[in-house]
Design a protein around this nucleic acid. Structure first.
Length: 289
DNA sequence: CACTTGACCTGTCCGC
DNA sequence: TGCGGACAGGTCAAGT
């Protein structure tokens, strides 16, 4: 669920809230949520100051003054929610944003010297926080393999078409979800982009024309930008750094709209299964070519 | 090698 | 009402 726009929205929020704060304490539930040894946390996290908050693909990077970085993947149900000390404590008038934290999904709590806290919540425990020397982050396997950022200027329609050709015999939806082809697209924006470009998700890449590729490029960029503008898509769990929901889902054309009319032609939207994922299409607008 | 499927988890929803 | 099972979907490992 947290795809590029959601992670970027969290980054924007944390970038305003965290830099300059000094970490005082880190508490985590199980090693799985924070696989680094306690010693590393004691040596390189506690006492360090947050320098900046960045994003690559769907991964958040919190760079510390210790030359180490917290590398965070929210996977499906992860949240990073910041609470200043003034919004803390049961019964406090400002303590009503999304309920009291920590809650039963809280995996890691980072407390800053000024009393504010950052909660890493994750209902399904797929997400994680890892600690790496900042200089080593680009060498993490995932970052070595991951594809280009779709919103960077260097990502042109030509680059997109060329990257798609890496998987000519796969269906286009599977390829859009492949992070080594292109970073940041997940189930929501794959469906929305394919609808925008009028391409059936089961269409094989080798059967996608340059014209269709260009249309898909534009549709993907458009939905990603719109979603960032609207604070991301809250389907179930997603919230931003302040614990607030995003509103993109109300702009969605097909995602989670099965049984409702296509906004373009009125045909009833169907939900099918492609690449092992629930997939939403307009059977009239999107036909296999 | 290219590509697809299953595992990892927990909560929710649907049918019986 | 309770219960089993399908489903949610990002990524990696295992399978075809």
């Amino acid at each position: 669920m947290p795809e590029l726009p959601e992670v970027e929205t969290v980054r924007i929020g944390l970038a305003k809230l965290l830099p300059g704060r000094v970490i005082q304490e880190v508490v985590f539930d199980t090693p799985k949520s924070f696989p680094n040894a306690p010693n590393d946390v004691a040596n390189f996290v506690v006492g360090a100051k947050v320098v900046l908050v960045a994003r690559r693909a769907k991964v958040l990077l919190i760079e510390l003054s210790s030359k180490y970085s917290l590398v965070i993947h929210l996977k499906m149900t992860g949240q990073l929610v910041f609470r200043g000390e003034q919004t803390f404590g049961a019964g406090h008038p400002n303590d009503s944003l999304v309920g009291k934290l920590p809650d039963r999904t809280t995996r890691v709590t980072i407390t800053f010297k000024d009393g504010s806290k950052l909660f890493f919540n994750d209902q399904r425990k797929f997400g994680w926080i890892r600690l790496f020397p900042t200089a080593e982050v680009p060498n993490i396997d995932f970052f070595k393999k991951v594809g280009p950022e779709p919103l960077e200027a260097s990502f042109t329609p030509e680059v997109f078409y060329e990257r798609l050709q890496r998987r000519k015999n796969s269906n286009i939806k599977a390829v859009l979800l492949d992070q080594t082809v292109l970073a940041g697209i997940g189930n929501i924006y794959a469906d929305e982009g394919l609808w925008g470009a009028k391409i059936h998700p089961k269409t094989l890449v080798k059967n996608i024309s340059q014209t269709q590729s260009d249309a898909l490029y534009k549709a993907l960029i458009d939905v990603l930008k719109l979603s960032i503008k609207t604070g991301g898509a809250t389907d179930r769990n997603y919230v931003n750094a302040e614990g607030k929901k995003g509103s993109y889902i109300s702009f969605a054309k097909v995602f989670r709209r099965e049984g409702k009319p296509c906004p373009r032609c009125g045909t009833i939207i169907e939900k099918i299964r492609v690449a092992g994922r629930g997939t939403h299409i307009c059977p009239q607008c999107q036909q296999i070519t």
